[in-house]
Design a protein around this nucleic acid. Structure first.
Lengths: 116, 116
DNA sequence: AACCTTTCGCAACCTTTGGTTGCACTCAAC
DNA sequence: GTTGAGTGCAACCAAAGGTTGCGAAAGGTT
């Protein structure tokens, strides 16, 4: 079912700050801990820790540039994460549909017998 | 963008144990803290805490039955959560496609000028 | 060269969260 | 009524997210 790698991916994108960080890196291009912290409600150090988490699971990677570290999204890894999301989503969706179908069948039987 | 309610939903389904619990409740039907804990690698008390979290965000609801508490998935809320998942997924997907398209355009320009 | 500014990384500390053990309570069944 | 299964509550622990404070390195200025 769910592997340890997948769980790390989930917990990585489960955090709202980290999700916003990915959004920012995607919309504004590569950024540093300092530049990101200016657009987030937490300190640079907190952002730095989040960047480390995202880096560890491979969703982003850093590129040293002088005294700065430019982070950017790893497209292939993010695509994998998106696939994970939609996989779980469609699994739950399928089960919901099945449950709904069964419930409707039961309801149909019940109303059929109600006339007796 | 992301509301506090959405963040709670995300963190609720971000936990691998809680995701598995939802899976179990969907596949096996309603269950109790004890029945779920028998199929999970954590104690009943931990399961109970997770159930409280899922209950608080409305993904499941309890139905007292004698000395037991039967929990089951709230289909409408889970459907909402699935919609959230696919929304974020498609947003990222769209941005990845845009980036890729731009990169290809740049590459085309580069190779066009390479012959000069 | 000396200085100042910006950015970063590390360490200490606090709070919340996920997990455990232990205990008391309730309800069904015998 | 006693016993057993299921629950809830409290205390305690470890890990995660967040903060402040400080020292080091790279870049710009004079």
């Amino acid at each position: 079912m769910s592997t340890a790698v997948d769980d790390e991916l989930w917990s990585a994108i489960g955090d709202p700050i980290r999700r916003t960080m990915i959004d920012l890196l995607l919309s504004d291009g590569p950024g540093t801990a300092t530049s990101l912290s200016r657009r987030l409600p937490v300190t640079r150090q907190a952002v730095s820790k989040h960047l480390a988490v995202l880096d560890r699971v491979g969703l982003i990677h850093a590129e040293p540039a002088g005294r700065e570290r430019h982070y950017q999204v790893d497209e292939a890894q993010l695509a994998r994460a998106v696939a994970q999301l939609s996989a779980v989503g469609s699994t739950w969706d399928a089960r919901l549909r099945r449950i709904k179908r069964i419930a409707e069948t039961v309801e149909r039987h019940r109303t059929d017998n109600a006339g007796s």
